[in-house]
Design a binder for these strands. Structure first.
Lengths: 223, 223
DNA sequence: GTTTAATATGACAAGTGTGTGACAAATCTG
DNA sequence: CAGATTTGTCACACACTTGTCATATTAAAC
């Protein structure tokens, strides 16, 4: 859960970001202009601050400059124009990222997450998650979520699935799978793979469709 | 060139978006209600889908939910009035962006471009695809696409086609094909090749023309 | 235009690869 | 150490693939 400050004079912009952010479990504060944003930033610690450039009383750049005097809070700028000099100017003042209007709320949230993740690199490991429809895979956490429910895979099933997914859309021979998933020192039967593919498929439920058989070759995770 | 689906019961809306989008070189498909949109989304892959919220038979949100079950196509929602922002809970269902009516077609197109660009950058792990007219061949994924539809080839057919294509515009003798595709230890009939060429040609549909017979010699993939 | 040789095609039987359930060996866990 | 889980092997069934052959069609040579 992050503490987010969004400063924009347009209510619509603030609201749409608030909705997205709150849905993701963050706490959102609003400021209607640069001056108010600076005041709020002085009073409390935010995880991230989003500033529109064009604001009454105090514009985004000036607000950024003010805030930087006292805090290192990551700042994202919203700009209506995409002119390059704006960007260069902004980065010199310690802006962490830019979003040019029109933007999608999803994009803003994605950038928020990216920046906070980047800045807290000292702390917890975030863990990369990939998602294919209702199938979510987190490599570092080593878990697989199917339609919201955690799947219960055996170690080999994890290994096999992870290797398939990391090489998605690539045709993998049985030999390659044996070498990479089982190890070069495995001297077993080819058909071992079939059995594990079978069990993996059973565990993936509707998403077994992603694992396609390449007759005479091996398998492929196809998206 | 993107493939765009616009679902709205108002013909005017569909038309104005179509005009702009086609002007930018995109391909536009129309649906008059949510139900039709879902059906179309199931049948083909769009680069983006635009859904009006208020539609007969199936509203935009429900349509979005349905589509999300099977596809990750980016979705933009159109809402009739800004008051509807209050009711917007679309982000729960993976809506990528909203546009509030009245909107300018230009704005919609700008958002389409922004979203597709963002989604494209996600980076697909797919090998290089070679394309000859409507015949696409991806060696690493080991698949062959004919006019947008995946072809279903047997192992030998893949091997044979891949060898021909990798040596395109080169005359290949039967002996060479036997050695390279079947293996040096194959002691069968020459004419076996003919049969496989036949089946390959049948599977390539209109693109059988690329495989030319060199009488008294062998075959060639000619482009 | 006829002959001759090579290729295309359809049918088919033998061969091969894969999905699956069962089971025993191996490994993990308390 | 016992019980549970995981893992590898096997055998069977079935569907698909493959090579061969006989016949039809086509192209080149005379």
């Amino acid at each position: 859960m992050y503490k987010i400050l969004i400063a924009d004079d347009e209510q619509k912009i603030r609201e749409v970001i608030r909705e997205y952010a709150e849905y993701e479990g963050h706490e959102v504060f609003e400021a209607v202009d640069g001056m108010q944003a600076v005041e709020m930033a002085k009073e409390q610690d935010f995880d991230i601050i989003i500033l529109d450039i064009m604001m009454p009383r105090l514009d985004g750049f000036s607000a950024c400059k003010e805030i930087r005097k006292i805090k290192d809070t990551p700042i994202i700028m919203l700009s209506a124009r995409s002119e390059e000099y704006d960007k260069l100017f902004g980065f010199e003042m310690g802006v962490d990222d830019y979003v040019v209007k029109p933007f999608s709320p999803k994009e803003v949230l994605a950038r928020i997450n990216a920046i906070i993740k980047r800045n807290r690199s000292a702390g917890e490991a975030a863990g990369e998650t990939v998602k294919f429809e209702g199938l979510e895979i987190n490599f570092t956490a080593r878990d697989v979520i199917i339609d919201g429910e955690k799947a219960n895979l055996t170690p080999k099933e994890y290994d096999l699935l992870f290797y398939l997914v990391k090489n998605k859309n690539i045709a993998l021979t049985r030999n390659r799978l044996l070498e990479e998933v089982w190890g070069y020192d495995f001297f077993g039967d080819d058909r071992t793979i079939d059995t594990h593919i079978k069990m993996l498929r059973n565990n993936l439920g509707p998403y077994r469709k992603f694992i396609v058989t390449l007759r005479g070759m091996g398998y492929k995770f196809e998206v």
